[in-house]
Amino acid sequence: MLEARLDQAEILKKVVDAIKDLVQDCNFDCNDSGIALQAMDNSHVALVSMNLQADSFAPYRCDRNIALGVNLTSLTKVLRAAQNTDILTLRALDAPDSLNLVFESQDKDRISEYDLKLMDIDQEHLGIPETEYAATIKMPSVEFRRICTDLMALSESVTIEASKDGIKFTCSGDIGNGSVTLRQHTNVENEKENIEIELSEPVALTFSLKYLVNFCKAAGLSNTVTICLSNEVPLLVSYALTSKAGSNLRFYLAPKIGD
């Protein structure tokens, strides 16, 4: 059976909120190392990958591999009943028909219990190759969201260029064009404001802004976002879910190709 207790329901609430417009039904794959999710959007342009390692939970117990087939709209309805600071416990049997969710207030004076019906989802899993990215940008997540939403007002796509001069986001549309350039920046007093750029070779790729803006719904999960680019491979946008390494919410986006 599965028993997984999260100290803050907020994490799962925000994950589901961030992905529910991209993915409708998906399997939460549970095993002794934690809970993972991988799903593509309907048009197969974007891939969502979530990992919540066992050490993000206390306690965590999962005796055998369990796939929890969940409709995210339904899960959203149940999670709405949880306060951000509630303790959340997930329970399921080995071959479950339903997922049991318990929300406890931190003072333990309120306990809510819900059962969510599960579904059989036959989802293909993709192998994501280990990639040494040519450019890695770590920046405030709200700043990335602002850039994407500002540029989407002008155009449906953005070209991201990484060079020794910095990271340049360029778009052009019917009313005109725009660009935003980011340079490495270290804020000694507030390192959350830092912009870190690692570059091994120049990169230029074009992406749909609709998807990038959608990914930015995860900005509430983490102060910083990591964006990884290499020529001719999908862009990676990654948010840390907890302070523990390995627990993250990742979005991959296929580039626009050809001319």
Partner: peptide, 14 residues
């Protein structure tokens, strides 16, 4: 104009 690529053409079966 550029065409939207598909994620499955980059990431295959595991």
């Amino acid at each position: 104009p550029k065409q939207q690529g598909s994620i499955t053409s980059f990431f295959g079966a595991p």
